[in-house]
Amino acid sequence: MDGSSHLSLIIDLSPSQWHLSAQSSNPHPLSFQTFLSHVLTFVNSHIASKHENTLAVFGALPGKSSMLYSSLDADSGNGNDPPADANSYRPFKVVNSVVTNNTQKELDLIGGLTEEPPVALVGALTKALCFINRLAHPPSGSLVDEAAASADPRILILSVSPDLAASYIPVMNSIFSAQKLKVTIDVCKVFGEETVFLQQAAHLTGGSYIYLERRDAFLQYLIMSFLPPPSLRHIIAVPRQDKVDFRAACFCHKNIVDIGFVCSVCLSIFCSPVAVCSTCRTKFPMKTLQRLNASRPAIPPANGVSNGSPRPPSARPSTGMSASLR
C-alpha cells in the first residue's frame, strides 16, 4: 500500500466553458487562473507524498489534445527551466512553470478560431492510457526503474464541458482499456451539468465521480477525494456517486437514448428498430421489426433515468432485435 503511485491528470481546457464558469452570475464563480493554481497545488501534493510518485498532465483542448507535463522527461532542461530558488522545492517549481507555460502556449494557439470545436477529451484520455501503458511496460534494457512500472496508476479528469454524444464509443473503448490496464479513472465535474459517460467511466473502473458543488473549496475537494491512491481507498473512504446514469448513446445518431434497440449479434445500439444492423450487416426479420415498432412507447420519456414499462421480450432472440432496458 505504500508503493509509489502514478497520476495522469486530464484538464479540460475549453475556453468557452471556462468563460462561463468565471462569470459572476454563478453561485461560486471559478476563474481558470484560480482553478489552475489549485490544480498545481494538488499536483505538488501528489509529488510531495512520495519521492517516487510520477505525474503526467494532459490538456483536452478544442479539437486537439496535448501533453502538458510528464515526469519522465521533465528533468531534461527544455528551455523553460525556471531559475533555481532557495525557497522552493525544485520539482514543484518545475511542474508549476512547465504546466503553466504549456497551457498558455496551447491556449494562445487556439485563440484565432471563430467557432470552437468540442474538446478532444477522448484524445487526452487515450494519450493518458498510452502513457500509463508505456510506464507499465518499460522497453527491455531501459533504465526505467521498477518503481514506475509497479506504480498503481490512476487518471483524474477535471471536466467542464458537456458530454459529447459522438464520442460514446471511443469513451467506452477507453474505459475497457483502462479496466484491462487496471487503471482507476476519477472524475471531478468542475462546471456544467453532469456527464453520463464520465460517470460510467468512474463507475466501471472503480474510481470516484464528484460533482463540484462548493467551487470555492475546490482544492479541499481535490485533496480529500482524489489524493489518496486507489490502494489507500480501503482505509480512507472517498465519496462515490450512489446514482449512476447508465444510459448509452445509439450508434446511428449518437443520441443518448433511454430505450435502445440492441443487435443480438454484435450488441450495437440503435435508437429505433432497423432492418439491417449497420455494424455487422445482420438482417432482421420483418415481423420482429413490426412487433418492436408496435411496442414502442408513443412519447418516449423526456429525461432522467428511464424506468419505462417492461418491454415484451423478443420472440426469437437469436436472430431478432431486442429492446434493451437501460
Binding site: 479541499q220 489507500l232 480512507i236
Partner: peptide, 29 residues
C-alpha cells in the same frame, strides 16, 4: 500513507475540525 493523507486533509483548513468529522472518512476496517 495514511498519515500523509491526514496531514494533507488538514493542511488547507484554517480552523480545526471535529475529530469525528475526519473519522467519518475512514472505513470501518
Amino acid at each position: 500513507a495514511v498519515e500523509r493523507q491526514l496531514v494533507m486533509n488538514l493542511l488547507w483548513l484554517d480552523l480545526p475540525i471535529q475529530t469525528s468529522t475526519m473519522s467519518s472518512w475512514v472505513t470501518r476496517e
